[in-house]
Design a protein around this nucleic acid. Structure first.
Length: 328
RNA sequence: GGACGGGUGGGUGAGUGGCUAAAACCAGCAGACUGUAAAUCUGCCGCUCCUUGCGGGCUACGAAGGUUCGAAUCCUUCCCCGUCCA
């Protein structure tokens, strides 16, 4: 075993490592470096890397970058499917059960904060989404004045309505949907306990490179993706007959490149738009992760050896035992 | 050389005498977010002061003058830019 097991409770609690950070901060590289050192396997926690065929634009680590370390929860969905936070949790739990059997340390590389929360803290017992209800609500909204949906929610659940902006149609629809399916207010369902992940204790590392440096990184990475055949990947996916409305075609870059293929915008316009959206996305990730509790922050990129060393030292300092092999 | 059109805050661009520190959008910054989350949404956004108030001061619509109680808005000259005519 590469780590010790706490024996002071009836259920042994196993450690797990979480690496959070904005896109292009080098989570994958750091994950692999730490996996080698501590005998771990990588579990991706990224809503976009779940999709088969969407490789370049989602910055899925290549086989070479994986360096022989097994990676889980990549390529588990068909482009037509839609991922959800709840399903992610279930898949991740299955992976954890497997790693536990094989005594491997899990290292989660997480870009999607909601999915990590769903895994670690759990979600309330909420009904799944219902396309019929959503469709009905959308139609109803189109037929009425702007505040219509918000007004409906206010009747069903004033507390939740107070928390959601009248313009936030997406969240209002989900809230109404839950109220209808659960036959009680969302706010009430939220007060029921979540089911946190049992049997595992997370140790969290966060990557927070300087904003300007990150922006540069995003710029050059986008260029590299484009010269690396990203447009061709999009063309291939469309040629394979996947519908344009498929979820992953909405991801940053895929939507822009689709427009390039349809001659709606030029490649240069797409490049600029992608770089911009990616930067904005990184900002949102940072906002989310800042609130994550107990994160050990490192002010740099995960592919930087100094950062990798600092991360390894941190883990060793909190009780993780490096593999002996390779050490003279 | 002549005729038009135009020069507005980081960008695009509205505004043609007071309600204008100047619409709207973008960018930027900050934030929220329990099954679409690479999504969706919110706030701030000239500088500055304080007793943080629908508060005070300063600077601002190419430049300089002028008209007016009051000008981004009217007048004069100048400087740029675009289109057309020579």
């Amino acid at each position: 075993m590469a780590y010790s097991v706490s024996m002071n409770s009836a259920v042994p609690v196993l450690p797990l490592v979480v690496i959070v950070g904005p896109t292009a901060s080098g989570k994958s590289a750091l994950g692999v470096a730490l996996a080698k050192k501590f005998g771990a396997e990588i579990v991706a926690c990224d809503s976009t890397q779940l999709y088969r065929g969407f490789d370049i634009g989602t910055a899925k680590p290549s086989l070479a970058e994986r360096a022989g370390i097994p990676h889980h929860l990549l390529d588990v969905l068909e482009p037509r499917e839609s991922s959800t936070a709840g399903e992610y949790r279930e898949r991740a739990e299955r992976v954890l059960a497997d790693l536990k059997l094989r005594a491997k340390l899990p290292i989660f590389t997480v870009g999607t904060g909601l999915y990590l929360r769903a895994l670690l803290e759990g979600l309330a017992e909420l009904p799944q989404r219902s396309e019929e209800i959503r469709e009905r609500l959308r139609e109803s909204a189109a037929a009425h004045t702007p505040g219509h949906l918000h007004a409906i929610l206010k009747k069903l659940d004033a507390e939740t309505a107070g928390k959601i902006a009248p313009a936030d149609k997406q969240k209002i629809i989900r809230a109404i949907e839950v109220c209808l399916l659960a036959r009680r207010p969302l706010s009430e369902v939220h007060r029921t306990a979540r089911k946190p992940l049992l049997g595992w204790t997370p140790t969290k590392i966060g990557l927070q490179p300087p904003r300007d440096a990150l922006r540069d990184r995003i710029r050059t990475r986008t260029d590299a993706m484009l010269t690396g055949g990203w447009l061709g990947e999009v063309r291939l996916l469309l040629d394979q007959g996947y519908p344009e409305e498929a979820k992953p075609f909405d991801f940053i870059g895929y939507r822009e490149l689709r427009n390039v293929l349809q001659k709606k915008i030029t490649l240069e316009q797409a490049r600029a738009a992608i770089q911009q959206s990616t930067g904005q996305y990184a900002k949102r990730q940072l906002t989310w992760f800042r609130r994550e509790h107990g994160v050990h922050w490192l002010a740099g990129f995960g592919d930087d050896q100094k950062i990798q060393r600092a991360a390894a030292e941190f883990l060793a300092g909190v009780g993780f035992v490096p593999l002996a092999a390779g050490n003279p």
